[in-house]
Nucleic acid binder design. Structure first.
Lengths: 99, 99
DNA sequence: TAAACATATGAATATATACTCAGATATTAC
DNA sequence: GTAATATCTGAGTATATATTCATATGTTTA
């Protein structure tokens, strides 16, 4: 059994990914996006935080390429970009429900 | 398509789970534990933080029941408690590697 | 019992994060 | 053009978190 641990750089990336799911508001936002795209206002209502707070979260998620934005007129609709992400996220939810 | 988002309480639990994987040091610790149990001193060396810092992290992970402690003499060996957690964690690593 | 070693704990501190508010930018309607 | 609506951005703030240091606890060995 060899000594092994992810190097600092890789570990930082993994941590960054999981950090995207590590906040209650973002979890609620992402869970809302599981059933399809939503605009900022709708997300803000569902999660009960300001439009601004949603926008800040979406910027982070966009930069991590976890969501994509689609503009339609003055509204911006967000959806989950990556199927792997959906799987990963749902597994987290499942794990918590099992307890 | 109904409006839906995880309720605050459930979302908080999901976030808490993912938060366990959201720190570089913890990711390195957990990746080390993937290949078997390790004591505190070994983990501290592998991750390059103090014994104390490791101990603090392990307390959190223990409280979340992600790891279990086994004392052997004056050493304490930690290992990952739950197979689901291993799967989830490995998927995160895989996702990052794919990019 | 005392000394040495391994781990745990609490306090202090530094950094990161989530949020709101105020104002900027973009788009549509009048 | 102006007004209204939706989103974004930056500043400021409050809270959370990761870390180290000093010290306590637990275990073995002399």
């Amino acid at each position: 059994m060899r000594e092994f641990s992810l190097d600092e750089h890789s570990a930082a990336h993994v941590a960054e990914l999981f950090r995207a799911f590590s906040d209650t508001s973002r979890v609620r936002i992402l869970s809302a996006l599981l059933s399809g795209e939503r605009n900022v206002r709708t997300l803000a209502e569902l999660v009960d935080i300001s439009d601004s707070a949603v926008s800040h979260h979406m910027r982070g998620l966009r930069q991590m390429r976890l969501v994509v934005a689609r503009r339609d007129g003055r509204e911006v609709y967000y959806s989950i970009q990556d199927q792997h992400i959906i799987t990963l996220f749902k597994q987290g939810i499942a794990h918590v429900k099992e307890r």
